[in-house]
């Protein structure tokens, strides 16, 4: 098994699927000649040519809508958003058109589009470029949303997304692009809608997704080393479909839950997870469910403060101790 970066894992997924299916097209701003704003698509133009790897103008509503239309006729476009923050200018296409077409046509039309790109704060770029819209988008039935935290999941989820017959929105993280991990060379997928227990424990369940998983794993080590607490970390991987069973199974074991996400707290993913736990595992709980999310304000520019605004290891450890108190 090769050790490759999260970025290389995403690229490998696209390369595999471009080779497997002639209807797969990579499209987005700077994906071809420029080799990708974050170099995720580096080398693909050279390997697959301009018919398969397509540079678009800065025109998200236009090219995302075009991808949706093309997908209705059987093309499988993998659209790169330079930042998911830019999806907001294409919201009508992403939600109204991609998300509703199957339903409104009574199941006559499929929309097998993938939209991928980074959706994260923590990069010192201010509020407009730091949005994390997984909760917003996952609140629309018809849409699937995944947030890989590791290179293995990045490759497997992206491949599953490209093969899926519904719109799948893949939210990556620029801070994770250089993270390395073991990734099989052979063909595999990570099924959409299946969470993963990233660390086994007995005293506390931390539910997280995206980079919050990495933060939580670091916090779990400190909790074990310094406080003698055994923490289980459940990585959601998919926001919608949500793997309720894995979350509930872990909570039934540990009886305590801390939910960590880089979203803002109001109507965040973990608001839904908290509801799930209280509605289906209320009697299992030995303590109230706690949350750690970004401080509820537009993303601050100042790097020192942004690091405090977002969930970090210290905040997760402190909140975990409260749940355990």
């Amino acid at each position: 098994m090769a050790v490759i970066s999260y970025r290389e894992a995403l690229r490998a997924a696209m390369r595999d699927e471009l080779n497997r299916d002639e209807n797969v097209v990579i499209m987005g701003e700077e994906v071809a000649q420029f080799n990708g704003a974050y170099k995720v698509t580096e080398g693909l133009l050279k390997e697959f040519g301009p018919k398969r790897i397509v540079d678009t103008p800065i025109s998200e509503a236009g090219f995302i809508g075009l991808g949706i239309g093309a997908s209705m006729l059987g093309i499988r476009p993998v659209m790169e958003l330079m930042f998911w923050s830019f999806s907001y200018v294409a919201f009508d296409q992403i939600v109204n058109n991609a998300g509703n077409i199957r339903y409104m046509s009574g199941g006559l039309i499929n929309c097998p589009i993938v939209i991928r790109g980074p959706a994260n704060g923590g990069t010192n770029v201010g509020a407009t470029h730091s949005h994390t819209p997984e909760a917003i988008l996952a609140s629309h039935p018809g849409i699937k949303v995944v947030c890989p935290a590791t290179p293995y999941d990045a490759k497997g989820l992206l491949k599953a997304a490209i093969r899926d017959n519904d719109p799948v929105y893949v939210m990556e993280n620029t801070i994770l692009y250089n993270d390395k991990g073991e990734v099989p060379d052979e063909d595999y997928i990570v099924p959409i809608g299946v969470a993963d227990v990233k660390r086994v424990g007995t005293d506390l369940t931390i539910v997280a997704h995206g980079r919050a998983v990495i933060t939580s794993l670091k916090a779990a080590e400190i909790l074990e080393k310094d406080h003698g607490v055994s923490v289980e970390v459940v990585d959601l991987r998919s926001i919608r479909p949500l793997d309720e069973e894995t979350i509930l199974k872990s909570v039934r074991k540990t009886h305590r839950a801390l939910l960590v996400e880089e979203n803002k707290p109001f109507c965040g993913v973990d608001a839904q997870v908290a509801y799930l736990i209280q509605s289906k595992a209320f009697d299992e709980l030995d303590a109230p469910v706690h949350r750690v999310s970004s401080i509820d304000a537009p993303q601050i520019y100042c790097k020192r403060m942004e690091d405090l605004q977002m969930p970090n290891v210290e905040r997760v450890v402190a909140e975990a101790l409260k749940v355990l108190a």
Binding site: V25, K51, A61, G62, F63, I64, G65, L66, G67, I68, G69, A70, S71, M72, L73, G74, I75, D92, Q93, N96, N97, I101, M104, S105, I109
Partner: peptide, 22 residues
Amino acid sequence: GGHGIVGGQAPLGTGLAYAVKY
């Protein structure tokens, strides 16, 4: 279709034309 939001179908149609050409 049949689309409810004014002008929202224009990019979709362009995508259909793109698929035909592809």
